[in-house]
């Protein structure tokens, strides 16, 4: 299946997402903050990135923008994880080329199907 990068600083959410995606047969790369996510993405060129918006230093939005700026990584689809009521985040997320978003509290099943949909769209 696909290689998915998951970046979130909350271990609970991270572990649940990783478990769910692994169970669906994806190879999962894990990052605990934006900086790590960025360097992992550049090195491993995953098929998809699931990024939490609120991460220290590089927020998910920053990572998304940086990925888009680099032709090597510009094609990596991005799904943002964002807190409810953060319409501004969602807007700027799309403005910077995010493909989809999932609001927290999140449903692991919904996230899984969005991952599948985005991957299918990009194939």
């Amino acid at each position: 299946m696909a290689m998915v990068l998951v970046a979130d600083d909350d271990p609970d959410i991270r572990d649940v997402v990783v478990f769910k995606l692994q169970q669906s047969g994806h190879d999962v790369l894990v990052a605990e903050d934006g900086g790590e996510a960025l360097s992992l993405a550049r090195r491993a060129l995953p098929d998809l990135a699931v990024l939490d918006v609120m991460m220290p230093r590089f927020t998910g939005l920053d990572v998304c923008r940086e990925l888009r700026a680099d032709p090597e990584t510009a094609g990596i689809p991005v799904i943002l994880l964002t807190a409810r009521a953060q319409e501004g985040d969602i807007e700027s997320g799309f403005a910077w080329g995010a493909d989809d978003y999932v609001t927290k509290p999140f449903s692991p099943r919904e996230l899984d199907s969005r991952v599948r949909a985005v991957l299918a769209r990009r194939r």
């Binding site: 909350d10 609970d12 649940v16 927290k104 509290p105 449903s107 692991p108 099943r109």
Partner: peptide, 15 residues
């Protein structure tokens, strides 16, 4: 406490 904390972070079937 871990379970209660997680409860606030997920919804749907997970919740």
């Amino acid at each position: 406490p871990v379970a209660v904390a997680m409860l606030g972070k997920v919804r749907g079937d997970a919740r």
